[in-house]
């Protein structure tokens, strides 16, 4: 973390428990994400990925998007990780350690990764600086009493975003059929 970021944490808008939780989660997520791309065991990579995805779900909770958090847990942790493990199993990937998982582009990868990171963090900090999160927009536009954001979310999906929603469902079906056709054995 650079100096500016530390100074951001020291700002007076500090909300102690939430920020402590965020810091712990973020540290775990970054470590786990790095392990995903560096570990030499394919199954371990999938398990580390699970940590990252769970962390993302917890972040959603911190951002007060409970429905999204539950979806994240159910779909990513429940379904997609299992799919990955199946993928590992069906392609007979080496289950133990193997020193043959990376190609020779590691320096290029590091440079490009840092380049992207530097650019994005520079512009993010420059643009949003120390903007505080406020959750008023959640309740303002939808006129929902109390904290029932899930209801507001479902209303939004099935009214304002109905057509994108239908398109997505058709896309999912198409992908399903496509996956069957591609993976079919004959």
């Amino acid at each position: 973390m650079n100096a500016q970021l530390i100074s951001l944490f020291a700002a007076e808008t500090f909300e102690v428990p939430a920020n402590i939780a965020f810091s712990i989660i973020a540290i775990f997520m970054v470590i786990a994400a790095i392990r995903v791309v560096t570990t030499d065991n394919v199954v371990h990579a999938a398990l580390w990925l699970m940590v990252v995805l769970g962390g993302v779900g917890l972040n959603f909770l911190l951002l007060q998007a409970e429905f999204l958090a539950m979806t994240q847990f159910l779909i990513y942790l429940g379904a997609i990780i299992v799919l990955f493990l199946f993928g590992v199993m069906l392609t007979r990937a080496p289950l133990g350690r193997s020193d043959d998982l990376d190609n020779k582009q590691r320096p290029i990868g590091i440079v490009v990764g840092l380049l992207v990171l530097g650019l994005v963090s520079y512009s993010v900090i420059k643009t949003f600086g120390s903007d505080k999160l406020d959750f008023s927009a959640y309740d303002g536009s939808q006129a929902v009493a109390g904290n029932n954001r899930t209801e507001a979310l479902s209303d939004a999906i099935f009214s304002q975003y109905l057509i994108p929603f239908e398109v997505i469902s058709v896309l999912l079906l198409a992908a399903l059929i496509g996956a069957i056709v591609i993976a079919r054995r004959d």
């Binding site: 939430a18 791309v37 990764g113 992207v116």
Partner: peptide, 25 residues
């Protein structure tokens, strides 16, 4: 909580993802 802290976390994850796409075989 600040907006930036989430955006920075996302940026870090994204860059790690980029690295992984480039490097993993």
């Amino acid at each position: 909580m600040l907006l930036t802290q989430f955006l920075l976390l996302a940026a870090i994850l994204f860059s790690i993802g980029v690295y992984g796409v480039i490097v993993r075989k």
